[in-house]
Nucleic acid binder design. Structure first.
Lengths: 226, 226
DNA sequence: ACCTGAACACCGTTCAAGT
DNA sequence: ACCTGAACACCGTTCAAGT
């Protein structure tokens, strides 16, 4: 009496051809967004799909290949502003904003997107559009390339900050206690500015997108209005 | 005949009290900087120290506690500019630059420093000094807090970018082939700006600190010179 | 108190096997 | 071709034991 799964899920055997790359990627993104990067496991992925662990290996070479495909797919979801006219500065802000939104909506995918080469057509289109807009805003050739990099670096940094901050806050709430917006106890003599600005620090601490907008404004002013 | 380590290292038994928290943190940072974050393993750490895996647990509660302590220690290594006079803008740039340098010199520690609350006095001093300088540069209360955040976000993003780029480049070199500075093949009709600016892109691609400086200039101009 | 190995519950992946 | 479980080499950590 060879009972198949001694104490596992009630799954017996899945009908053929239920699995395909798209369904696997959907499940991977669900897993990533719902449970975080550390829960993105080949075994958990298979469980999510209601399938044996090794079934996934019929469609992808391994976890790395799935991660690459997820990054690719997420970049596809970005909606680029279609309007071809208007102020270059506004259009630049639109594109960068939608990048930030992508990172915010898929927090655990941020490291996927920053850690690997980002090949694929989607990223190239974003790059090309930004470079063209920076040029048409009057920047020189090298300035445009440097400006593009500065914009992306700021965006990634702001997204990392927001993402980690969110996790930090969740962690603190789970423990209990406000913990005054992540700032440890301070002594007025040694940290005068910190104590003086405490109310503003607490106020600003929460809102990710608003803060991103503010920094983006500053950066664009410095880039374009010099 | 109970032979101790069947095929392990020739270590037999270490004299007492050779281990202490400082030596463990030294080894952890060495491991992190030399072999990368994914090589930072409790077993590898013990090997580095010439000690059994579980010996470390006599000094730290677990891997998380070691990671926290490493982050703390790295923040201590930051050298804050001592000069108390001079242009606030220059002094702000100095502090942010030394933060960027810290991140660059300890690439694998970047996620350690961004993923956890960053408690401890060292971080607080940096924050307090930056806030004070932004205020004395003429910024309002909320502007100073937002400006501080923007600066840190940009710094983290630039460091992530540089770090990941370094790994990417090493990976590509190992495979062989220049791979034209990380940019995949492009078609001139679809990506005009990218093709047009190819030489500048290749030129800028390499230098991390120079690019950081440029973006920092822009951001500071937008922040202070508005 | 400090260090040890064995053992447990995980992980990605290889392999031989089923349909 | 597609899916399966067993097995292998890893991981962090618990535990009982040595000195």
């Amino acid at each position: 009496m060879p009972t198949a799964h001694p104490a596992r899920s009630p799954r017996r055997r899945v009908p053929r051809n239920t699995l395909n790359p798209d369904r696997i990627l959907d499940a991977a993104i669900t897993l990533l967004d719902r449970d975080g990067a550390e829960a993105f496991t080949m075994r958990a992925l298979a469980e999510e799909l209601g399938v044996g662990t090794m079934a996934v290996y019929s469609h992808f070479r391994g976890k790395d290949e799935i991660s690459d495909a997820v990054a690719q797919r997420l970049l596809t979801e970005i909606e680029l502003p279609a309007a071809r006219g208007g102020d270059p500065g506004d259009r630049i802000a639109d594109i960068v904003r939608s990048l930030y939104r992508l990172f915010s909506e898929h927090p655990s995918a941020l490291q996927l997107l920053t850690s690997r080469p980002m090949r694929g057509d989607e990223r190239i289109v974003v790059t090309d559009q930004l470079l063209g807009l920076l040029r048409s805003a009057g920047l020189g050739r090298t300035e445009a390339v440097r400006g593009y990099l500065a914009l992306l670096q700021y965006t990634v940094g702001a997204a990392v900050w927001t993402t980690k901050g969110r996790r930090r806050r969740a962690c603190e709430e789970a423990v209990g206690g406000q913990a005054e917006a992540g700032l440890p106890t301070t002594r007025p003599e040694r940290h005068p500015s910190l104590v003086d600005l405490a109310p503003e620090i607490a106020e600003v601490g929460d809102m990710g997108p608003v803060q991103f907008e503010h920094g983006l404004d500053c950066l664009l002013r410095g880039l374009l209005g010099g």
